[in-house]
C-alpha cells in the first residue's frame, strides 16, 4: 500500500528510470551502428536506369520476313569492372518496312533463346523448352508467357539508314 503511494507520487521509480535510460541509450547506439548499412545495401536501386542508343547495323542489311541476328557492343560499367559487352538482337524487318529488334533473353526465366529453327516456331529456349514465332510470340502452353522483349529503335538514326538500339522493354502477353 505504502509502496504504491510512493510510486504514484514520484511518477517513475529509480529502477524504471535506469531501465529506460539504459534501454534508450542502447537502442540509440544500435540504431547508429545499423542505420548506415541500409543505404549501403540498397545503393544498387539508384543505379539502374535507361541506357543510350548504340549503332548495331545498317538498315540495308535486312530482308523482309526472316529475323537476323545482329551483334553489337555496349560500353558497360559493372561495379568497378568496365567492359565492352557484346549484346545481340534478333531483328525482323516487317512487310511495312518497320523493324522489330528482339532481345534473345527468354521471357520465362532468362536463358538465351536460339533462332533459325524450321517450322512455325523460329526461336527455341533450351532451358525449359519454350518456343517462339519469328515475331517472338510464345507457343501456347510453353513456360514462357510473354513475347520476347524488344530494344527501343532510334527513329532519327533510322532515317540515316542506321539501326541504333536502346533500352529493352517488355511487350504485353
Amino acid at each position: 500500500m505504502n509502496d504504491n503511494n510512493q510510486k504514484d507520487k514520484e511518477g517513475l521509480s529509480r529502477r524504471q528510470f535506469l531501465t529506460y535510460a539504459l534501454g534508450g541509450t542502447g537502442a540509440f547506439m544500435a540504431a547508429a551502428i545499423t542505420m548506415p548499412m541500409i543505404p549501403f545495401t540498397v545503393d544498387p536501386l539508384r543505379r539502374v536506369g535507361a541506357g543510350n542508343f548504340v549503332e548495331a547495323a545498317k538498315v540495308s542489311d535486312f530482308e523482309v520476313g526472316v529475323p537476323k541476328k545482329v551483334e553489337f557492343t555496349v560500353h558497360k560499367k559493372d561495379g568497378w569492372v568496365e567492359s565492352d559487352v557484346k549484346l545481340s538482337a534478333w531483328v525482323l524487318k516487317k512487310q511495312d518496312g518497320t523493324f522489330l529488334a528482339m532481345s534473345p533473353i527468354c521471357t520465362h526465366l532468362g536463358c538465351q533463346v536460339n533462332g533459325g529453327k524450321e517450322g512455325d516456331y523460329f526461336f527455341h529456349c533450351p532451358c525449359h523448352d519454350s518456343f517462339f514465332t519469328k515475331d517472338g510470340v510464345p507457343k501456347p502452353g510453353v513456360p514462357a508467357t510473354r513475347p520476347l522483349d524488344t530494344y527501343a529503335i532510334d527513329e532519327n538514326a533510322l532515317k540515316e539508314g542506321k539501326l541504333a538500339l536502346g533500352a529493352i522493354s517488355q511487350r504485353k502477353a
Binding site: P44, D78, G79
Partner: peptide
Amino acid sequence: PYIRILLVGGADLGAL
C-alpha cells in the same frame, strides 16, 4: 523487381 535488384546488386548479374 526490387527484390531482384537488391539480390543481384543491379539490373544485370555481374561483379556486384
